[in-house]
C-alpha cells in the first residue's frame, strides 16, 4: 500500500502511460528508468518537482505520480520503504524480470 512520503529527502515516481513501466524524475526533469538515477528533492523543491511531474501527467506521458522517501547512497538514490524498493527492483520471486535485469537496483 502506498505510504505517504514525509521525510526530508524525496524523489518523484510514476508509471509511463503507454507501457506502464515504472519511472522516476531524474536530472533536468527527465523521467529515468532506474531509481538510482532519481533526483533527490528537499524542502520547497519537493512541491515544485511534484508540480513538474503532474504536468507530465496532464501531457499523457505518465500516470500515478507520487513522492517517496529516499536516501542518497554511493550506489545512487535508494527508497526507504520496501514497497518502493520492490517497485524499483522487480518481482523478488522472478529475478529474470523487471528492473533488476536491465540495471543496478537497490538491495531489498
Amino acid at each position: 500500500m502506498l505510504v505517504k512520503a514525509k521525510g526530508a529527502q524525496q524523489s518523484i515516481t510514476a508509471n509511463r502511460l503507454i507501457d506502464g513501466v515504472a519511472v522516476w524524475l531524474g536530472a533536468g526533469n527527465q523521467w529515468v528508468e532506474h531509481v538510482a538515477d532519481a533526483a533527490i528533492f528537499e524542502g520547497e523543491a519537493i512541491a515544485q518537482a511534484l508540480d513538474t511531474a503532474k504536468a507530465d501527467e496532464k501531457r499523457q506521458i505518465v500516470v500515478d505520480v507520487y513522492p517517496l522517501d529516499v536516501e542518497a547512497t554511493p550506489e545512487g538514490t535508494r527508497p526507504l520503504h520496501i514497497r518502493e524498493r520492490m517497485k524499483a527492483i522487480g518481482p523478488s520471486v522472478r529475478r529474470d524480470l523487471g528492473k533488476q535485469v536491465t540495471g543496478p537496483t537497490p538491495a531489498l
Binding site: G20, V21, A22, Q60, V63, D64, R83, K99
Partner: peptide, 28 residues
C-alpha cells in the same frame, strides 16, 4: 482518446478497469 488526452486518467481508470486493466507496481 486517453492517449490523445481527450479523457483524463480519473475518467479512464474505471473504463480500463471494466475491461480488466489495472496499473500495478511494475506495469499494467
Amino acid at each position: 482518446r486517453r492517449l490523445k488526452g481527450e479523457i483524463t486518467e480519473e475518467e479512464f481508470k474505471p473504463i480500463r478497469l471494466m475491461n480488466g486493466l489495472y496499473l500495478q507496481l511494475h506495469a499494467y
